[in-house]
Design a protein around this nucleic acid. Structure first.
Length: 234
DNA sequence: CCCTGATTCGC
DNA sequence: GCGAATCAGG
């Protein structure tokens, strides 16, 4: 297989959409995970949180327990990039905007696991604007964001009535919000599609979910009880 | 073990 | 440019 423009485009979009190299390789077919990663790098695609690349080189790195930068003059409220967790805790009652009434005429191929409380980006309850331009949630409104890369098998955007007007994988671009609505594999899985918050992969609203201010430990909500401990579907 | 992405290096 | 082999963290 060769890297045609189309395949490169798919790779690029999937990579940016947060799909793993394996998923991308599987989707493309004819290429290995390594091939995808190699290509992604050659394309100059920015790497996502890698397991084995925590910090940057730190050129003149402080060899040892050098006092962690106190950052005296510019106390920048720590903004933490929360890697999209897999589940969401029903903390602040998210709008019951659940996807359940969808008729899955596609025969029951997969066990419809429990009506999982699909926590989706609910109407953002935002209180303040962070330095990076992020909208911040108030303490207590902490709501785990849903994952852009759910553990479901990726399904190519198939043209179907349900998808009319929806932003599919293939519609993604640098300018539109890549926040996923629903889960891959579901009939109407699509993306937000809003205009992005310049410099970010999501729209302003969804940036508020993807990027949250780091709260002091003692003020942080204790780990919420297991959301729904269902085993992975697959 | 499984997974992940990064990197290397012969082709 | 390509991607298998290898590495290394989770």
């Amino acid at each position: 297989m060769s890297w045609t423009d189309e395949r490169i485009d798919t790779l690029r979009k999937m990579w940016e959409a947060g799909q793993t190299a394996s998923q991308i390789a599987e989707e493309l077919g004819g290429v290995s995970r390594n091939a995808v990663i190699g290509k992604a790098h050659r394309l100059g695609l920015q790497s996502r949180p890698s397991p084995v690349k925590p910090n940057e080189p730190a050129t003149a790195a402080a060899p040892k327990a050098a006092a962690p930068k106190p950052t005296p003059p510019a106390p920048r409220p720590p903004v933490e990039r929360v890697a999209p967790p897999v589940v969401a805790a029903p903390v602040a009652k998210p709008e019951p905007e659940v996807v359940e009434d969808i008729e899955l005429e596609d025969d029951a191929e997969d066990e419809i696991e429990a009506p999982v409380a699909v926590a989706r980006p609910a109407p953002p309850i935002l209180r303040s604007v962070g330095p990076g331009g992020f909208l911040r949630q108030a303490p207590g409104e902490q709501q785990a964001p849903i994952t852009p890369a759910p553990p479901r098998r990726l399904v190519p955007a198939k043209p179907s009535p349900e998808m009319a007007g929806k932003t599919t994988l293939l519609d993604l671009s640098d300018k539109i919000c890549k926040w996923p609505i629903g889960h891959p594999g579901e009939p109407d899985f699509h993306f937000c599609g809003e205009k992005v918050n310049p410099g970010f992969p999501y729209c302003v609203g969804h940036c508020g979910h993807a990027y949250q201010a780091q709260l002091p430990r003692r003020d942080r909500r204790p780990a919420p009880p297991l959301p729904f401990g269902g085993p992975r579907a697959r």
